[in-house]
């Protein structure tokens, strides 16, 4: 038995080392689409690579925006800066609170905002966050909190990609990559916003559905709010508009609204502005630039009314 345990322990070490070595070699030599569980290509549809590089070079902003694609495609820093304040959008694709927490811990003290606008799309609280973690792994640095998150998420794709990204980071290979400004999802605008070419959306019906929230996302959310409060910044929670047909299909919006209201200043823009499914949206839950204009102007009014533009 002793021999078995010792040999097994030795093999485990050998296997772990060999495995990570093979992941690195495979990641460097085989395109990602042939190796489904190692994402080795930098960039991506959400422009997080460009956003992170820009955030690292920013010294200070007045307004920091957080959240999912609804943040970086819905909150145009150029419009928000009409309030006379500088703004930076740190949203990323399918970002859920567990990733937002990592970004807040990295950038809150660095960017020192006086206001944080946190886009709280309810669906983000229903996701496990694997997609967003992958985006962070390949486009930002892998540090201890991110590594811990990856281990917690128990997803082999994240582990493999994390190992590969760490190796690339260690060998300083990522600096040579420059992301294209325009890709299929739109054009990256300095400040973190991604402008979509104006597309319209064809109305669709939805069956009644519910958001099935994950408790650990709310736990991360509470920790984020505490960090923001501790930094002395104001926090504004916003729920960006989605198509009315989709919005009305959810049966637990009231619960979500009351929960958010209990946490901080919260505004559900689905109830504050009237938008048209076809004219103001590029898909069922993303605004096109016409919709963004209307939404952001209303947001500035709300900020004004709260005295947050002063």
């Amino acid at each position: 038995m002793k021999k078995f345990i010792t040999t097994l322990a030795k093999f485990s070490l050998f296997c772990a080392f060999g495995y990570f070595l093979l992941v690195c070699v495979f990641g460097m030599s085989i395109p990602s689409y042939y190796s489904p569980n190692i994402t080795s290509h930098l960039g991506g549809s959400g422009h997080l690579n460009s956003r992170i590089k820009e955030a690292n070079n920013k010294a200070h902003v007045d307004i920091l925006i957080l959240g999912s694609s609804h943040a970086y495609r819905g909150l145009d820093t150029r419009i928000i800066e009409r309030s006379g304040k500088s703004a930076f959008n740190l949203g990323s694709s399918s970002q859920t609170p567990i990733q937002t927490e990592i970004l807040v811990n990295r950038y809150l003290s660095h960017l020192e905002p006086s206001l944080v606008i946190f886009e709280v799309y309810p669906s983000a609280f229903t996701l496990d966050g694997a997609e967003s973690s992958l985006d962070l792994i390949i486009n930002s640095r892998v540090d201890l909190p991110l590594a811990k998150l990856v281990i917690k998420q128990k997803n082999i794709k994240l582990i493999n990609s994390g190992v590969y990204a760490s190796m690339r980071q260690f060998l300083n290979l990522e600096t040579v990559f420059t992301e294209e400004n325009t890709n299929s999802s739109g054009t990256y605008i300095s400040g973190g916003f991604v402008e979509d070419s104006v597309r319209t959306y064809r109305y669709d019906d939805y069956d009644k559905q519910r958001w099935d929230f994950k408790p650990y996302q709310f736990e991360a959310f509470d920790r984020i709010l505490s960090s923001i409060k501790l930094s002395g910044a104001e926090c504004l929670l916003v729920f960006s508009p989605i198509t009315p047909s989709r919005y009305n299909s959810y049966t637990n919006q009231v619960y979500f609204d009351s929960l958010m209201t209990s946490k901080a200043s919260y505004f559900n823009f689905n109830q504050l502005i009237q938008l048209d499914d076809s004219l103001h949206f590029s898909d069922s839950h993303h605004l096109n630039q016409h919709g963004v204009e209307i939404y952001n102007r209303k947001l500035l009014q709300v900020m004004d009314s709260l005295g947050l533009s002063d």
Partner: peptide, 18 residues
């Protein structure tokens, strides 16, 4: 032998469904 077994583990890790 151990390298071969590690390679099998690697194939599982890279090609398994998440």
């Amino acid at each position: 032998r151990w390298t071969f077994f590690t390679f099998i583990v690697f194939l599982i890790g890279v090609f398994m469904k998440t």
